[in-house]
Design a binder for these strands. Structure first.
Length: 477
RNA sequence: CGGGGCGUAGCGCAGCCUGGUAGCGCACAGCGUUCGGGACGCUGGGGUCGUGGGUUCGAAUCCCACCGCCCCGACCA
């Protein structure tokens, strides 16, 4: 008896189903909006905690800006406005009164933050400004999917201002590297990193960098972006300061963000036919203890299980004892596997007699008895192994699904038959980029930065013109 | 936003064609027996049939509009 659709059979049915069955989120009664349930929100909270620590230790501080952006501010940066206007939600009324000026529900906060920075930044001594905010934003998207693209989503957005162009560039790349390290260490999701093309870059940015993950259906997912804004926003918001030579300069800015989409990435990258597989570092429950309820188990087994729970808790492990009487052990095994708990410990009469617990890994399904003496040590070791193994498996998958292609016919065949990332050369023209997208639905996910490129050049996959621009194409979410 | 599919109990569905007492499985509640990989028996509760309008003596069923979900495209964290 199976109660979830197998991932291998129908990925696009599996995904929303597992989101709901595992109680990560549920549809709200508003188009494109979801309720993040406690189990899903806990994952987000661990993501936040791990990322917030990195953001702060790299010198940034958290602050909070308003939800609403006056239309006049949003309009200042033309490219920015054009990029976002199709998906902005507007507030036109307050109570019974029509507003004199429409208020945008922030689709991102560059505008209102730019406005504030112009008041705060007067001297080179005020720089750099390194601020991050955790917030919700609204984008009126036409097609939505839980976590991957919702009308409202939660994210962090960093907004920094610098004295020099180099300062801003350095910040942009520093965050890009931080995101990559974060994704791989905490989410066990390996990512490519590089530049976006002109077509794909952030509205109003000078250059956009991103990290891209490969989901297990062979489609790419943009997991984070870091933008070098140059002086675009500083010029229209008048963020000027007196530099060391006493001349007036516009500030150099960056912005960068990751969102609740990352929860979707974890689900899609690691899940299998039995459900979720959560990396221990973001798993709300790292270890579940299932007592085997036979005979006088409440007197014999349960006290041992409780003691086990206490000792794991003391070691800082997120542990749950599932002592519910209305379910059989077998049912609990399947349920917690579906919910992605990395490690299960079974405690039954046999284990009590042998002073042990039987461990079962979610990732490999390996079972191994562990002595109850100092059990936290091997449990921590196992959680570490699982975290590591998830990353290695995902890396292996990414490698196996990355194909170097040289000509367009091969490009199309590989894309159709194997999916995944296609590594190739591109001449840099929007014409070729558009043509490929039109014909194959594949987009350039990243343009490799110089230091990541293979030496030498190749012909553009589309027009054949010689080029050093090495890129990864994929179909994407 | 275009093309297609779907919306009936928490979930999965039948009933609709041919209008006339709203059903099945799982889940849920109670009791009992079970429990080392999704247990079983008995009893029971739960429905504005997505929403609004129309046709009709009578609408889950026929007609219209809207909303939502899924898939495939056009646009995006």
């Amino acid at each position: 008896m199976r109660n979830i659709t197998a991932k291998s059979e129908d990925f696009s049915k599996w995904y929303p189903e597992i989101i709901r069955k595992a109680a990560l989120a549920d549809y709200a009664p508003i188009k494109g909006m979801m309720v993040i349930r406690p189990y899903g929100y806990a994952i987000w909270e661990y993501i936040q905690a791990h990322l917030d620590r990195r953001i702060k230790s790299s010198g940034h501080e958290n602050a909070y800006f308003p939800l609403f952006v006056p239309e006049s501010l949003l309009q200042k940066e033309t490219a920015h406005l054009e990029g976002f206007s199709p998906e902005v939600a507007w507030v036109t009324q307050g109570g019974a009164d029509e507003l004199e000026e429409r208020l945008a529900v922030r689709p991102t906060s560059e505008a209102i933050i730019g406005h504030m920075y112009s008041k705060w930044i007067k001297s080179y001594r005020d720089l750099p400004v390194l601020i991050n905010q955790w917030a919700n934003i609204v984008r009126w998207e036409k097609v939505t999917r839980p976590f991957l693209r919702t009308t409202e989503f939660l994210w962090q957005e960093g907004h920094t201002a610098h004295e020099t162009q180099e300062g801003a560039q350095e910040e942009t790349l520093k965050i890009l590297a931080l995101y990559k390290e974060f994704s791989e260490t905490e989410l066990a999701v390996p990512v490519l990193s590089g530049e976006k093309t002109e077509k794909e870059k952030f509205a109003g940015a000078q250059m956009t960098y991103c990290i891209e993950g490969l989901m297990s259906d062979g489609k790419a997912l943009q997991m984070g972006t870091s933008h070098d804004l140059g002086q675009n926003f500083a010029q229209v918001f008048n963020i000027r300061f007196e530099d060391r030579e006493q001349t007036l300069q516009y500030a150099w800015q960056t912005s960068w963000g990751v969102s609740t989409r990352l929860v979707g990435a974890v689900v899609m990258c690691h899940g299998d036919d039995s459900g979720l597989k959560l990396p221990p570092r973001v798993a709300p429950v790292q270890v579940v203890i299932v007592p085997i309820s036979v005979g006088d188990w409440k007197e014999t087994v349960l006290p041992v299980a409780r003691q086990l729970e206490v000792s794991l808790k003391q070691a800082g492990i997120r542990v749950k004892l599932d002592a519910r009487e209305e379910f059989t052990p077998g049912w609990k095994f399947s349920d917690w596997e579906m919910r992605g708990v990395p490690l299960r410990l079974e405690v039954g009469p046999r284990d009590v007699k042998n002073n042990q617990a039987l461990s079962a890994r979610r990732d490999t399904r390996e079972k191994q008895p562990l002595s109850l003496e100092n059990i936290a040590d091997p449990v921590l070791k196992l959680l570490d192994d699982i975290q590591n193994n998830l990353l290695q498996s995902a890396r292996k998958f990414q490698k196996e699904n990355t194909h170097v292609v040289g000509d367009y016919a091969e490009f199309k065949t590989v894309l159709e038959e194997k999916k995944g990332f296609l590594k190739t050369f591109w001449c840099g023209s929007a014409e070729c980029e558009n043509q490929i997208k039109e014909e194959t639905m594949a987009t350039i996910r990243v343009v490799l930065m110089e230091e990541d490129r293979d030496s030498g050049d190749g012909g553009c996959i589309c027009c054949g013109k010689g080029s050093q621009e090495q890129v990864y194409f994929a179909r994407a979410y």
